[in-house]
């Protein structure tokens, strides 16, 4: 009894240490392992998406993304960073949605981003968001992914482009952002 309890504690400690709930979910198919992932990553994903699309669309994409994760769980590789995989799926769904709405690579997305941020009081942040909303979708996407902490390689994987393209997009994004943001805000 003592041994089995000790073993359970050791197993729990190992699992919580690795935090790889996705691996557990992939092998067991038990959705209880998804809940900690939703708890941890859904707010990050939603906030990232809110910088690209409207609140309603961001919420829809979040829901679709988690459903997609169930469907594609067999494709998840243990060595892959879960966050990068999640963002990759979400990004594809977002592009599909924008294409459906005929807003992909269109300036209309900027308007959505500006007009829906009512909750922000901080003028500096507001100005930053307004500037971010004015740069092109691809540049904004690369820049926000970098802000999320992804490496150039991971951004290239998520956006399905070459690393050099990512570098170029980031350079232009920063250049445009510098132009758009007043000195005191940046």
């Amino acid at each position: 009894m003592i041994i089995s309890n000790g073993l359970k504690l050791w197993l729990n400690a190992t699992v919580s240490k690795s935090k790889d709930w996705m691996n557990l979910y992939t092998h067991s198919g038990d959705s209880k392992y998804l809940e900690p992932l939703i708890q941890q990553f859904n707010p990050i994903l939603f906030k990232y998406l809110r910088h690209q699309i409207s609140e309603q669309d961001a919420a829809d994409i979040c829901q679709k993304t988690w459903l997609k994760i169930i469907e594609k769980r067999h494709l998840y590789k243990e060595q892959t960073q879960f966050k990068a995989w999640l963002f990759n799926i979400a990004r594809n769904l977002m592009i599909d949605e924008l294409r459906r709405q005929k807003k992909y690579l269109d300036c209309d997305t900027t308007e959505i981003s500006i007009t829906t941020h009512h909750d922000v009081e901080d003028t500096q942040v507001n100005a930053f968001r307004a500037a971010l909303a004015k740069i092109s979708f691809e540049q904004k996407e690369a820049l926000t992914l970098q802000f999320e902490g992804f490496s150039l390689e991971q951004i290239a994987n998520i956006t399905q482009t070459e690393i050099e393209t990512v570098k170029s997009r980031l350079r232009y994004a920063k250049k445009h952002l510098s132009k758009l943001l007043p000195e005191e805000h940046s």
């Binding site: 809940e35 939603f46 910088h51 919420a59 979040c62 922000v120 930053f128 968001r129 820049l143 920063k174």
Partner: peptide
Amino acid sequence: QAKNWQTLYQKSCQQTSVPPQLKQQIIRNL
């Protein structure tokens, strides 16, 4: 400048509210 922007982005994220029912909706859908 990049660090400054990243801070602004993080602030922006912090100030962005997540719909409270979203998590429950996702779990229900799953």
